[in-house]
Computed example of a mutant assay.
Amino acid sequence: MGLYLWEEKHMKSIVIYFSESGNTKKAAQFIAQETHSDIDELKPIKPYPDNYDQLVERSGDEIDNNIHPEIDKNLNFSDYNVIYLGYPTWYHRTPMIIDSFFDTYDLSSKTIIPFTTTYSSEFDESKPFIEKIASTKNVTLSPGFRANSNTEIKKYLAK
């Protein structure tokens, strides 16, 4: 095991995730279990619609109009060095609530490890968006990964 990942595994960590269908939640729970991390969920104050067509319309509107939905609770990350950040890939990118996450919280000097659940693309598709969001926030952005299965997650964590 490389020194970098040894250090990551011995720092206090939390898994933060946004999940609409439940796939990202399952991945987040598995990552939290495997890394002995705390876990919490990102939710917008105004919930996304359960109806798929309405969800697509709202998420597309947020992207088109650069709307960062307000997060429903105040989280404190002062006790954590590492944040695993999970999200589904929407429109080939991160959902706008991920922008809200970086806008809302002081993540200075944290290591962010992004992961996505997506069946139609690789992590690299959303990577430029997470890199752009994180670039001005004084964080260390770790290489991310696709977390569609426990096997994929274990493979990443074993690096």
Rank of each mutant, 00 (worst) to 15 (best):
Y17N: 01
A158E: 15
A134S: 13
Y156M: 08
T35M: 14
Y87D: 02
Y80F: 07
Y84P: 00
T104I: 07
F123E: 00
F18Y: 12
E20I: 09
I153K: 04
Y119A: 01
I71S: 05
A28C: 10
S135N: 11
L157W: 09
S100F: 02
Y52S: 05
L85E: 02
F145I: 05
S121I: 00
A134H: 08
K132D: 14
S135L: 07
T118E: 00
P69M: 06
I83D: 01
R93Y: 04
N66Y: 12
S100N: 09
I98M: 10
L3I: 14
Q33N: 13
F102Y: 10
E125Q: 09
T117Q: 01
H36P: 06
T35Q: 13
F115P: 00
I63D: 11
K12T: 08
N66P: 07
E70I: 10
Y119C: 01
T111S: 09
F77I: 03
D61W: 15
S37G: 07
N66K: 15
K43P: 02
A158I: 12
A28H: 08
I130M: 13
K25L: 11
A147G: 11
L107C: 03
W90Y: 00
I97F: 03
Y17V: 04
I133E: 02
L55R: 03
I71D: 02
I39D: 08
E62T: 03
I63F: 13
K73I: 03
L55K: 01
I153W: 11
P69Y: 04
I67D: 08
F115Y: 11
E62P: 03
W6Q: 15
G60Q: 13
F77G: 00
E7A: 13
I112T: 03
Y84Q: 00
S59E: 08
N51V: 10
I14L: 04
F77W: 04
H36K: 14
E57Q: 12
I97N: 05
Y105A: 02
S21Y: 07
G86C: 10
M11E: 12
I71C: 08
N150K: 15
Q29V: 06
N76Y: 05
Y80W: 05
Q29C: 10
T117F: 04
K43L: 08
E8W: 08
T94K: 04
M96P: 06
I63L: 15
S121E: 03
V56M: 03
L5H: 11
S149I: 11
I98Q: 02
D61R: 14
T89F: 00
L5E: 10
W6S: 13
P114D: 09
Q33S: 14
Q29R: 13
K159S: 12
Y87N: 06
I67P: 05
E41N: 09
D99Q: 11
Y52L: 10
T104Q: 12
S100C: 07
L75I: 08
M96L: 13
S126H: 03
I113T: 00
L107W: 03
I133V: 14
T104N: 10
D64H: 14
F129T: 13
K25S: 13
F102M: 05
N66L: 12
I98G: 05
K127M: 14
T94M: 12
I98E: 05
I45H: 00
H68S: 09
I63W: 12
V15P: 03
S126G: 04
F102D: 04
T35D: 04
D103W: 01
E7F: 13
